[in-house]
Design a protein around this nucleic acid. Sequence first.
DNA 1: GTCTATAGTTCGATAGAC
DNA 2: GTCTATCGAACTATAGAC
Lengths: 220, 220
Amino acid sequence: MDVKGRPTTRGTARGTYAVGDERRSRILDTAVEHFAQWGFHAASLARIAKDVGITQGGLLHHFRTKEALLVSVLEASDEHDIERFFAEECATVAEWFHRLLDLTAHNARRPGRTRMFNALVGESGDPEHPAHAFFTRRYRTLAEDAAQSLRRGVDSGELRPDTDCPAEARQLLAMMDGLQLQWVLDPEAVDMPAQLHRHLDRLYRALSASGTALPPRTTD
Amino acid sequence: MDVKGRPTTRGTARGTYAVGDERRSRILDTAVEHFAQWGFHAASLARIAKDVGITQGGLLHHFRTKEALLVSVLEASDEHDIERFFAEECATVAEWFHRLLDLTAHNARRPGRTRMFNALVGESGDPEHPAHAFFTRRYRTLAEDAAQSLRRGVDSGELRPDTDCPAEARQLLAMMDGLQLQWVLDPEAVDMPAQLHRHLDRLYRALSASGTALPPRTTD
DNA sequence: GTCTATAGTTCGATAGAC
DNA sequence: GTCTATCGAACTATAGAC
């Protein structure tokens, strides 16, 4: 009867999610689109519910409050995939750069989620915003993970020993977010993956101990 | 009696603005803070009016609708200063880079306006947003102006002839916006001007025909 | 699990007194 | 130029029927 997050393992099959969870994830997907269009404050539970095909009361059975819905959306989003993109150990920095390019190409194929993150990150600059802590923490974690990926490159001799890893990490995140901002506003005018590729190519040339261009992906 | 934008030149002194215009600009300043905190949709005319010290009815005497207020805020903002930062002819690209650093330092001193732009840019990814056209156009113009500043550097021989000016322009804007996003969320963790300086320094080394570092500002 | 009904706010905007 | 008063609509959240 309780719906608090966990799958209500009904029936016998292990790993089988209850039917209700399908509705739950339909709500989450719909909420992404609404937060993308309206931001958090201006999004409306009634409109979200209507899009899902239920009433507001029905929606609030799954998520007690609007804020709880936001938290669930953020947690259920690709955040974890993205964090893995940044954290996962790669054999080389070059390989890691290619992963970042994959991530950007991925985001270009999911305009809904991408727009939602732009809207919520901007909105959550206000310390009172319910997602402020989430995003502040997110950038700290991403910056640390990215810095560590670069640090490994320094240690292996792939990158120059004088590389300022924390600074490069912040700049890398900034470039990705900034391109995303422009791309959402005007996708025709900005080839986001191509632009990032140009940037990473030159960055690799500047940071690599050999001074060579970014080598093509190793299928490994 | 009409308040539509122009100063109601009352009395005799030329260039003297009527008393009412002081109230008008108080409203605009207050609105900046509210749009920064709430975005457009969730900002409230009643709350803004209360902060100004008048009633909602009084506010709507100066700005007929909420959307008109937004437009006035955007037009009255430092947008024009910023566009001048990008468009103004500089003797050298190095000099222009130093101007961009000035702009970033300037933004770091006006967190209200900076937060507002982050919030509104993110929100206006939605094509229905009242500021969508404004920001789409803004980035096109800024990118063109920046590209032209670089182009002049290529023509003068300061930059390498194979410089892709439009692409570099978009990346420059992206880096500035991305750093701003992180800075607003966590000013302690991100030294925005210093980070941009590092970036521009390396960029200049990569783009300059001589391959030298960004020269210090020429007081001219 | 979804519904209806509703409480209690707050919203943008209008009208008219002063 | 600012006020009060008010309209109609939308909002989050709760309560209880089924």
